[in-house]
Design a protein around this nucleic acid. Structure first.
Length: 574
RNA sequence: GCCCCCGUAGCUCAGUGGAUAGAGCGGCGGACUUCUAAUCCGAUGGCCGCAGGUUCGAAUCCUGCCGGGGGCGCCA
């Protein structure tokens, strides 16, 4: 079923390779090197100092941070500041009067592009700008190309993002998809924002569930039912049939599961830098050395025949057992050893993406890394709330043990990786999410992935049709961008302008869904522009055509960059 | 009992302490001899769970309730 979301395997692989270069983007901009780098200083960098100077001139101590926003309502101007409101009280001034004085000072020698400074409401200072400030966005975006929005925010900080980390006892299922898409998008976002990012999958290949898995495989191979509490999934039977005689079901089974997981995650565009084996770590003696370290630091003690971590000293509810009285280690100790290893590898910041069912585990993990002498803020745990899957309004339950599961492979096969990714990245991971599989599958306008990709496809169609008609785009230098005054054109430009701010905020807040929201807004403005501002029509004057054409190019760069951060493809035609 | 997340339009969800709270979908009514109508436009649709508090200003911050989800082991 070659629907719009369908891509060949080789295309996906190419995309996976492309993002290895530090960005989720794919296509190179067509115009990049040919352009002069006319840098467009952000209006914020013009207006905020102007406000600060004006405030000082009026004898008011400017606050450390001056707020400047772009009001949602057009009649409130292009930029708006609340400084008068924020400082009036401390300065013993009336906010409206202070705002008026600020406006007078600023209007007397208006900053670049400013046509009017007005006061409104309780004391807002509103700036009205001539469209020229936005026109600089076209050459700026085109010059930046795939780097538009890239920043050095992270200052090269070494970050380890650990996510998915599903047990190697079966296929990854739909329940893992949220963590997978979130972790991957977060990693792209952080890399794009100047962090040195490594993505890792922790392979929990040790312990009772691993043995149960192996026993289940062995039983199926022998033509028997899995043991009590074993894995009942259909895949166990299939894999058992594949397993050659004489293989150790634990070793072979893990390899089989990992192969399956790596394959399907790669199909989703999720590729890890490292798969970290718990068993290998344990075999290397990390448990003993970690325990010795903890004892040395005086945070481990023996009581009731067990060994405990004094985690209450670091904010945990109760002390935790590290080694049980029967001599077995608990799950906590290997986890501590694992995080100790992460720090030993030189990472400055650890980000773990965990499901909501593990949130209670956060305080003790934080306590553990503190007990090893690290700052608790060096470990961030992002909890993704649970996803409720529905089919036509009916809840679909997933349980690996019972074998009642929707695999990620099935999901991708039904809707394609783009729809899966965009669907999961639509909203904050703080909110529980309801995904109706019927809706995701439907190739209708209920599915936002098509809306966004369609915007890009439409922009791309301009070049194709122009080529058929023999129409030419002249060099950017010859375009008169000041002709872009239509509200639809300005709306696209405004969206392009805020992209770097959106990326920064999304990175700071570990919130890739903010990029999704932005992409949808840009796509919306592109559709409006496309609808109302024809480029190739014969009654469009040539100079306006050229200006719009370049705007379309810049918008396409924006769409590709935004989608690239989300790992969603930007097909040129649909 | 304690801890975490959520509660915003019929549904799914956005919403950096700001002004008249937004989008998509669904429903209603319009727009294709033109670059993709998978689009666009319009009208409709809201005690932002409830009650206090902080603030010049609260969907947003604080407290307490109510409702939903998840978690509180010498399980993993």
């Amino acid at each position: 079923m070659p629907g719009p979301g369908h891509r060949s395997r080789s295309t996906r692989r190419a995309r996976v390779r492309a993002r290895r270069n530090g960005f989720g983007g794919r296509d190179r901009p067509t115009v990049r090197s040919a352009l002069p780098t006319r840098s467009a200083p952000s209006m914020r960098d013009v207006l905020i100092p102007a406000l600060r100077d004006a405030l000082s001139g009026l004898g008011v101590e400017p606050p450390a941070e001056i707020h400047l926003e772009q009001p949602a309502r057009r009649e409130h101007g292009d930029f708006s500041s609340n400084v008068a409101l924020a400082t009036a009280k401390a300065a013993g001034r009336n906010p409206r009067e202070l705002a008026q004085q600020l406006a007078d000072v600023l209007a007397a020698s208006p900053p670049r592009h400013v046509t009017a400074v007005e006061i409104a409401g309780p004391g807002f200072v509103n700036f009205r700008l001539e469209p020229g400030w936005l026109h600089d966005q076209v050459p700026a975006v085109l010059a930046a190309g795939v780097d538009h929005g890239r920043s050095t925010l992270g200052a090269g900080r070494k970050v380890l993002v650990e996510y998915v980390s599903a047990n190697p006892t079966g296929p990854v299922h739909a329940g893992h998809a949220r963590g997978a898409t979130y972790g991957d998008a977060l990693a792209r976002l952080l890399a794009f924002s100047g962090h040195d990012v490594t993505e890792e999958f922790y392979v929990n290949d040790r312990g009772v569930q691993m043995q149960t898995f192996a026993d289940s495989l062995a039983a199926r191979k022998a033509g028997e039912e899995p043991p009590e509490g074993g894995y009942l999934g259909e895949y166990i039977t299939e894999w058992a049939a594949e397993m050659p005689d004489g293989e150790d079901p634990l070793i072979w089974g893990e390899a089989r599961a990992l192969l399956d997981q790596q394959e399907v995650l790669a199909d989703l565009g999720v590729v890890f830098d490292a798969w970290f084996s718990e068993r290998a770590m344990v075999n290397s003696g990390a448990i003993d050395s970690t325990l010795a370290d903890l004892r040395e630091r005086g945070v481990a003690y023996d009581a009731d025949g067990a060994t405990w971590l004094r985690s209450t000293e670091f904010g945990d509810d109760k002390d935790r057992v590290l080694v049980k009285s029967d001599g077995e280690v608990t799950y906590l100790l290997p986890d501590i050893a694992y995080h100790r290893d992460k720090f030993a590898r030189g990472f400055d910041l650890l980000i773990n993406v965990w499901g909501a069912d593990h949130h209670g585990y956060v305080p003790r993990m934080k306590a553990a890394i503190q007990s090893l002498g690290h700052d608790p803020s060096d470990l961030e745990v992002v909890i993704t709330q649970l996803v409720r899957l529905e089919r036509g309004g009916e809840e679909v339950k997933i349980s690996k043990r019972s074998g009642d599961l929707i695999t990620l492979r099935d999901l991708i096969g039904e809707v394609g990786p783009d729809a899966v990714r965009l669907t999961y990245l639509l909203q904050s991971v703080d909110s529980p999410q309801t995904v109706d599989l019927d809706l995701v599958v439907s190739q209708s306008n209920e599915n936002p992935v098509f809306y966004v990709q369609m915007a890009n496809a439409r922009l791309n169609s301009i070049g194709r049709v122009a080529a058929e008609r023999g129409m030419q785009r002249l060099p950017l230098e010859q375009a008169d961008l000041s002709l872009l005054t239509h509200e639809r054109e300005l709306e696209v430009l405004r969206n392009l302008y805020v992209f770097p701010q959106v990326v920064e905020l999304a990175a700071r807040e570990r919130a890739p869904h903010k990029v999704t929201t932005w992409v949808r807004e840009l796509a919306g403005s592109v559709h409006g522009f496309y609808h109302d501002c024809p480029i190739l029509h014969l009654d469009t004057p040539e100079p306006l055509r050229q200006a719009r054409w370049w705007l379309a190019e810049a918008a396409a760069v924006g769409l590709r960059n935004g989608l690239g951060l989300l790992g969603v493809s930007a097909p040129e035609r649909m």
